[in-house]
């Protein structure tokens, strides 16, 4: 199975790099501004972002905590359902208020999807909110720039510009002209990351399976009164005995590994890169990675249950139900 997984990853790798080589370009037609009350805990806004970005028609979004608003961008007028927006905001734990829709107007041209595009940039050298503000102000002053979203966390910027008027080179020149920053058009190399993820996931799965064999399975067999079966099992696999003597540490190390692989597998950047660049290979590898991760979690959970949960439960049942 391991061989198959590695083969699949290697098979998809060149394809991933190919499909991820081009930065995505979006065209927006409608801007929906939603006033959201209760936006007082930025760390809690994660659920809001995830729920809204999955809404049908949402191409991009920006959350302005201080103003208490969320701005959604769509490539089609009226595509984002207001009822759904309100529902998702409530589900995310906040209170939706006014919703305003605004068609993106372009001077000297009809407002259609071909008139604007998004340029994705990577920016090095940003250290604080002042840098963000500095870059935003500089870019907004360029003729033909409609919207600027600078992201300090990702060291990136998304700039909505009028096609044929503003080029990526111009934006880079202005940013670097500020003196402290280096900018370039954003490239995605998530194929490599997926490879790393799968290696970590494999180790997480491996250690979890080890736990299941050394500690959980014998505990489970013993719990259902199969002492002789445990004896046979350990005689056949004597190397399990020293491992089971340190099962606390093995659980800890496996837990850390699973945590790390979960971080690599489920962090939002991986998902965003895939959805922006698209491609079946990217999606398939993503699915494989997730399958390995959740497999490891399931095996680990089974191990925890049989190693530490089943005996107290049986003891309790014995105490309260059979006496």
């Amino acid at each position: 199975m391991i061989k198959t997984l590695t083969k699949r990853t290697l098979f998809f790798l060149p394809f991933l790099i190919l499909v991820n080589g081009q930065p995505a370009e979006n065209s927006w037609k409608e801007k929906v501004t939603v006033r959201v009350d209760g936006l007082a805990c930025p760390f809690c806004a994660y659920g809001l972002e995830k729920k809204l970005e999955r809404l049908n028609g949402v191409e991009d979004l920006i959350i302005k905590i201080n103003e208490g608003v969320v701005i959604l961008y769509s490539d089609e007028k009226g595509k984002i359902d207001e009822k759904l927006i309100r529902q998702k905001v409530k589900e995310a734990g906040f209170t939706p208020r006014e919703v305003e829709r605004e068609t993106m107007e372009l001077s000297g041209a009809r407002s259609n999807g071909d008139d604007v595009k998004t340029i994705h940039l990577s920016i090095d050298g940003m250290k604080c909110e002042f840098c963000v503000l500095n870059i935003e102000t500089a870019l907004k002053n360029i003729e033909g720039v409609d919207e600027v979203i600078v992201n300090l966390e990702n060291n990136s910027a998304e700039v909505l510009v009028k096609k044929g008027i503003v080029r990526a080179d111009t934006l880079i020149e202005v940013i670097e002209g500020l003196g402290k920053f280096k900018a370039r058009v954003k490239k995605y190399k998530k194929g490599i990351d997926f490879m790393k993820q799968n290696i970590v996931n494999f180790f997480a799965l491996f250690t979890s399976t080890g736990i299941l064999l050394c500690c959980a399975l014998p505990a489970a067999i013993a719990a259902i009164a199969g002492g002789a079966a445990v004896g046979t099992f350990l005689t056949t696999f004597p190397w399990l005995i020293p491992i089971s003597q340190h099962k606390g540490w093995i659980f800890l190390v496996s837990g850390i590994l699973i945590g790390f692989s979960g971080f690599l597998t489920l962090r939002p950047h991986g998902k965003i890169a895939c959805s922006v660049t698209g491609g079946k290979g990217c999606e398939d590898t993503g699915r494989l990675t997730k399958f390995m991760f959740w497999g490891a979690v399931a095996v680990y959970g089974t191990g925890v249950f049989f190693s530490y949960g089943i005996v107290p439960i049986l003891r309790l049942l014995d105490k309260y139900m059979f006496t």
Binding site: P42, E49, K64, V132, L133, E153
Partner: peptide
Amino acid sequence: FPKVYNIYPSPY
């Protein structure tokens, strides 16, 4: 930090 939290996500 920051005094004013503008765009999500930003470190604070």
